[in-house]
Amino acid sequence: MATAHSRSAARIMISPAVILLLGWMLIPLSMTLYFSFLRYNLLMPGTHDWAGFLNYRFFLTDPAFFAALKNTLILVGGVLAITIVGGVLLAILLDQPMWGQGIVRILVIAPFFVMPTVGALVWKNMFMNPVNGLFASLAKGIGMQPFDFLGEAPLASIILMVAWQWLPFATLILLTALQSLDSDQLEAAEMDGAGPLSRFFHIMLPHLARAITVVVLIQTIFLLSVFAEILVTTNGGPGYATTNITYLVYAQSLLQFDVGGGSAGGIVAVILANIVAIFLMRMIGKNLDI
């Protein structure tokens, strides 16, 4: 059906998008790669000496890097654990017959639409503040000492904030997947005397496996780059307690003006993200038939 004429027209139609994305990916990324081999600090204009792998050596042996790597893994892992377990349970709950299902759905999904800086500041000040926060009021109300969330357990507090924002996403996708489950199958299992637990583990969970994998991969891509929540609540502190890789690279480049070191960190972040991206791309590619 496609003629040579329509093929060349198609090529013209697609070229602006390809050229823009190519430029957006290649030019800055190769610049980052190039900078990462230079001794280049914005506070010392003029010095662009070749540094070889020095920046990488400094970045990868810096205790801050290990702290940031550990925090990144804990942050991603913690949020994934909460959102997957919570998302599966919520999806199953929302799939049950009930009154006002549409409204409950809206309530559950809402946090996903709250901008990260708003969500983080509301949690930090109005809930977690040890003096004026709502949690402190509740604690005092039942005669307990208020807990200083961001002081005593900063990373856990940020995990809670981020999980609150991503729980709706996991729930929504798992609910979509659950609704495609054949209800005859569940009924047949019930007839055969399978209890709710065995129905969950033998029918629902296998059916959801694919959706869970997709949620894990997509969330990981976004969670590796958590930034605003850290910037407005803890600035990466106390010490390096809440610094993740993204925040570390930001601090090194735009706060310490160390272009070389920051670039090396940026390349490390790209490599980490790519490890996840390869799996995600493979899953998406399998589903795409042209």
Binding site: T246, N274, M281
Partner: peptide, 11 residues
């Protein structure tokens, strides 16, 4: 889309 933003922040 999988490219982390810090990878291109400086340029």
């Amino acid at each position: 889309k999988m490219l982390p933003p810090v990878g291109v922040l400086i340029p």
